[in-house]
Design a protein around this nucleic acid. Structure first.
Lengths: 154, 154
DNA sequence: TCTGAAACTGAAAACCGTTTTCAGTTTCGC
DNA sequence: GCGAAACTGAAAACGGTTTTCAGTTTCAGA
């Protein structure tokens, strides 16, 4: 689900929830962010539109929004708890380790990997969490590195 | 790198570090764990062999061990900061969402997925973090579910 | 052996992000 | 209007992690 306020209003209403001014401010703050944002960053950004907003409300709203699938939590090997808008399609995030810029990519075929894991471990696998990190094109160029499209997994 | 004390002693020595009794206790505690363990769980377990061990030392040691690659941090969409021994080979972890049991699987071909991401996003991808979760065979049976080897990605 | 330097330690305090509590406010259906 | 329920922010509580600090252990070299 994307961050479409109307759509979210409807989803909220179906649960007896309301899209208040404060929640709207939180939503906008995440939507406008070009990179993943932490609760405190959301708080700061949202307060520009809604100065009386409290941090408590930010936490509660982020929780709600990720519950209904409007936001996605992103984690890295070292840091936790940042949020990005979730696109409509199922996707995974790629985070730039220099500038924090996040993009999603959807053209992924994890099924083969998941199947291999099932075969090898006997687990019934219900979820996968994949996050890629590296360097975005802009940072790559800034660092004077010619774009070379090769990746190595860790 | 596996949790081979001799190997770790050598790696430590190369950095001017020592594998003390306390560090050894931490190492053993993680090695013996059949599931991922949090710092506090390590603390509790390690104290059985080394009662005067402090939590500070546990944190410092876990940090050190994961720095040299002897441990792997595992994260899930909701929780953070647990550790498992890293196997010698490059592998990913599969965590049972019922009992916390962790296994690694190594027969993974993430390259195709990474390549697709590179093509689609233009990022130079240097790391990937993949974690699968689901139900281990034991929990599946305990829940009266016949083992069916199919997975669905999230 | 001593000796000095550096690594290492645990307890306590500090820190910091998150959650809970609580009393008050807003919204909505009637 | 009115009452119920959703919602709010401030402050307190909470819990995990990191820092500080003074003391201990280890090790290389004299």
């Amino acid at each position: 689900m994307a961050l479409d306020a109307d759509q979210i209003t409807v989803t909220f209403a179906a649960r007896g929830l309301r899209l208040t001014r404060q929640r709207r401010a939180v939503l906008d703050a995440v939507a406008e962010a070009s990179a993943s944002v932490s609760p405190v960053q959301v708080f700061d950004a949202a307060r520009e539109h809604c100065p009386e907003l409290g941090l408590t409300t930010v936490y509660r709203t982020l929780e709600l929004l990720s519950e209904i699938g409007a936001l996605r939590r992103v984690h890295g090997p070292d840091h936790c708890e940042a949020f990005v808008p979730a696109s409509a399609a199922h996707g995974h995030t790629v985070v730039c380790s220099r500038c924090g810029q996040v993009v999603e990519f959807t053209d992924c075929d994890m099924q083969a990997v998941v199947d291999a894991a099932v075969r090898q471990t006997g687990y019934r696998i219900t979820e996968h969490f994949l996050q890629l990190s590296g360097e975005c094109p802009a940072c790559g160029e800034r660092a004077g590195r010619p774009q070379r499209p090769a990746g190595d997994g860790a």
